[in-house]
């Protein structure tokens, strides 16, 4: 293959990628506009805190209260790598609703590698584990039964 030919192919590839990328962003933006326009806000203001809004498009990088809106992940060291790696195959909600120690999270990574086709994370593994152990650690003991919480009080008709 001549160099010129190879350069042309490379240019074509880049252009194709750029066009596809732009199209995808336009689609996501249209989705976001439709979402804002039609969402009636009725679902989960006070819903249990583990329930995750899954409607924010993953393409956005908006941050509210120190959290990435698209995934719900806290912005901190390692966030970008966690977002890119952990939401590759599954929803960020899987991470958000679970709480483990560093060893516990390591066991989950090994399980995903053994059974779910997760690739070798290389140097990123320790960054990911540090992040998860810090932000998704077990909470203090609850006892055998917590008080009922997050009750939405309402007048009972008839």
């Amino acid at each position: 293959m001549t160099k010129q030919n190879s350069d042309t192919k490379q240019l074509f590839k880049v252009l194709t990628a750029a066009i596809v990328g732009l199209l995808a962003i336009v689609i996501l933006l249209v989705g976001a506009v439709l979402f804002v326009g039609f969402y009636d806000g009725s679902t989960s203001d006070n819903a249990s805190e583990e329930a995750v809004s899954t409607t924010a498009p993953l393409g956005t990088d908006e941050v509210v209260d120190g959290k990435d809106v698209a995934t719900g992940f806290v912005i901190d060291e390692g966030f970008e790598i966690v977002k890119a790696t952990c939401t590759g195959c599954h929803s960020s909600a899987i991470v958000l609703q679970n709480k483990f120690t560093r060893e516990g999270w390591k066991a989950k990574i090994v399980w995903m590698q053994e059974t779910q086709g997760l690739w070798d994370l290389g140097d990123n593994e320790s960054i990911i584990l540090d992040y998860l152990a810090k932000h998704h650690a077990p909470e203090p003991p609850k006892g055998r039964r917590l008080p009922l919480k997050d009750i939405e009080w309402y007048e009972l008709e008839n």
């Binding site: 990628a17 993953l58 393409g59 590759g88 070798d120 994370l121 290389g122």
Partner: peptide, 29 residues
């Protein structure tokens, strides 16, 4: 298509793109 497109859409680099299984579709798409 190629992975840089995904990266553009996802707003993040795809780490270890070379070892991602064939047929894999990023969650956002």
């Amino acid at each position: 298509t190629i992975f840089s497109t995904f990266s553009a859409v996802l707003g993040a680099e795809i780490i270890h793109a070379a070892s991602i299984p064939e047929g894999y579709i990023p969650v956002a798409l």
